[in-house]
Design a protein around this nucleic acid. Sequence first.
DNA 1: ACAGAAGCTTA
DNA 2: GTAAGCTTCTGTT
Length: 982
Amino acid sequence: MKKGDHLFLVDGSGYIFRAYHALPPLTRKSDNLPVGAVSGFCNMLWKLLRDARNTDVGIVPTHFAVIFDYSSKTFRHDLYSDYKANRSAPPEDLVPQFGLIRQATRAFNLPCLEMEGFEADDLIATYARLACEAGGDTTIVSSDKDLMQLVGPSVTMYDPMKDRQIGIPEVIEKWGVPPEKMIDLQALTGDSVDNVPGVPGIGPKTAAQLLEQFGDLDTLLARAGEIKQEKRRQSIIDNTDNARVSRELVTLRTDVPVSEALDEFVLESPDGPKLISFLKAMEFTSLTRRVAEATGTEAAEIEPAEVVIQSKEEAHGPDVGARVPSSASTSETAPASPAGAEPAQQDQNTPSALAEALAQAAVAHKFDHEAYVCIRDLQTLADWMAEASAAGVVGFDTETNSLDPMQAELCGFSIATRPGRAAYVPLNHKSGQGDLLGGGLVENQIPIRDALTLLRNLLENPAVLKVGQNLKYDLVMMNRYGIDIASYDDTMLISYVLDAGLNGGHGMDSLSERWIGHKTISYKEVAGSGKTMITFDMVDIDKATRYAGEDADVTLRLWHILKPRLVAKKLVSVYERLERPLVPVLAQMEQRGISVDRQILSRLSGELAQGAAGLEEEIYQLAGEKFTIGSPKQLGDILFGKMGLPGGSKTKTGQWSTSAQVLEDLAAEGHPLPRKIVDWRQLTKLKSTYTDALPGYINPRTNRVHTSYALAATSTGRLSSSEPNLQNIPIRTSEGRRIRTAFIADKGYKLVSADYSQIELRVLAHVAEIPQLRQAFEDGIDIHAMTASEMFGVPVEGMPSEVRRRAKAINFGIIYGISAFGLANQLSIPREEASDYIKRYFERFPGIRDYMDSTKTFARANGYVETIFGRRAHYPEIRSANPQMRAFNERAAINAPIQGSAADIIRRAMVRMEKALPEAGLDARMLLQVHDELIFEVPDEEVEATIPVIRSVMEGAAMPAVALKVPLQVEARAADNWDEAH
DNA sequence: ACAGAAGCTTA
DNA sequence: GTAAGCTTCTGTT
């Protein structure tokens, strides 16, 4: 958010009531569902978004959010227990519309905000303040007088029903005081609707006159004796305290601990199909038509969305009654304070106190595996589904017969509704004693179709938050059974955002020990290990219930503990922008997989085998005996013992090093054997790791290779790929590149590879603000040649390639937290010479040294470093007393913001890409990510149209969160195989 | 059957 | 000099 930006904040709850009373009642034709307020709300939003120029606002918003009351119970009740006491419950036919209007907001692709313990007005006040501080303007879409105190030079209000703007003059005209005195005025007049006492006998006219006379409330109260009118004087003196309390009640909080940053409210173009789907479900025909026209969508082809109608008990909104989470109210045990947490002393209803109580309950509630329920009939399952949806948050876990979600079959699933309360639903457990065709199905399991029908309602209901641990697995799994999970959190990812780089990892077992102090049942205990390991469908159902129930229970508890910490550490937007949305994107990519040509690999494998066999003969000849070439120990004995070659370095275990570097050096001295070893290693490496292993990963069902991406594996924010790792497919040598030719597009498709050019150096130029680097990238100059020219005074024209090569190595060295030792090794030059290069580099680019020093200082002070998007990487050992350890952590800390920022950028690109391609009407499918490269499968005839979309999404991926001072450049090519596309 | 070291592949 | 994962060999469990 910056100067010139314009934020619209819609008072959603206020609008509901006004629309309900002002507009004629309207019901959905098919089932008499009341939807009058929803209709008014949708029309109002559409008008604001599409026809802003035709309304009195006349402004096109850049940022937009809709804000709701969470419930009527807020911190104000503790100031004044009678606050809003005389409010009656909302009309029956309004209640279901609370939830529908929130769904409408999401259908419009707009942020939908609410916070327990605060009124919508407090959130509005807070965001208006934040916008103002960022230099932006705000329009509050509401006509509520309670919000008028916020009006100012950069904040106006807009009444959408009267199409009228309310600025400073309008406030004065209506109330007789300027906006900044509205609080004092309301404190005097009170509010009968909200039961704010005020001073009896003082109305707006008198209040304005008194404030005019005395200036402000405090002065007025202090000098009340001067008031001439006897009754008025007495009333004010008698009600001094009431006036003060009233002032507190009407003062809006501008310091709500909001979790979303303004930048997350950037207005995005409406998603035509999504919106139309909702409008159709509501049966708003004329608005559906208008939206279809404006977004160029064919409405007839869109199915109505499934909308969830909330009951009075589930609905959030003003006056539907405070919801006290069940786990807080029913926890019998006295909550103990978890390590490092402050005891909750403040009142129970502030959001932080509530979260604290829940976190304590999650730790304190004791584990009772026998209490977990095993669900074996439909009615019990239905009851649990209802309990889960009433809870609003549910721990969820699937149990399957394989670690590979692309091959696994569902064995059952578990849910938890509050700490200690969980259930397992066995669906596909087999008995050990089966007939010849295999184990028979155990009796009394709910038929999988019936169970999934009920489960679907829960998983696809966006009003219920599903909490998983490594949810990508369950997402892929449920996807394969035709279910799309909506609204979810992943405790593994929350932990990763909080603690990347810290000890312990982010698996459920270690999180449970660390945060709850509870050791979970290990998988080994239920399924055994090694040869005798059984698949989960063979596990005894009682055992499975204890294990699976605990998984869901622990996951939900961890969520109660970890989620509030995101808020406290201001990492919510990292989680919600860079982690959570990537889960379904990666789930899709993994499910798509990529085609690999078996023939090419097997032909290559044969050639490699032949080459290696030939080399083996020659090696035995030269060595004079047969030995295991692949054993560095034996090889070392041959080379440095038997043959007496000059031994280079030794490894840390005291063995002779036989690394490629050592062997290359020996070869350069004219010894024939080392060269053969190097070549042999290359061939056997390619054969065993790639040509022989890859075909084994081809999924028999899909005929494609499906890698698995880990989101929470690296300290910097990069992804990792495994089983198979498709991020280290060879490219450097011509032999290796032949492996890439085996990665092919389907018939009628091309592979498109799009990679960021020099993204880490560009990030470095941005964060360290190096003018020459920035200029060079701006001008599209060869960056390594420019560096060489600056350092060695050699003109770029006709520069010897060796000079450029050295500069390139130095540029990379800088990114890796350079050391003279490392650079000397890389370039095979003396350490003194490398040292001299570095010194010269720092002289030419002093900003680099500043960046490195300030990063080290920051890391030492805080124990972590940050990317440009706020992701943290922890390096606690940077304070180590061991100089080697310390230096290593310093280099890692220097590298992490660079590598991590680049990783964040491509993550943002991937999240947007998954939406942008279909929005552009393209069938291109994103398949792979290799750190700075994305690989797509694109229909032949769409290649030309797709590449510009890919480029623009990738090149613009940092925006609008960060305006890079250096342009990003993406190179994209299409071909039949990966080798030619790259 | 498992774990660590060494070595090699990628960005 | 940063960040990963996989294979082989080797010694321990």
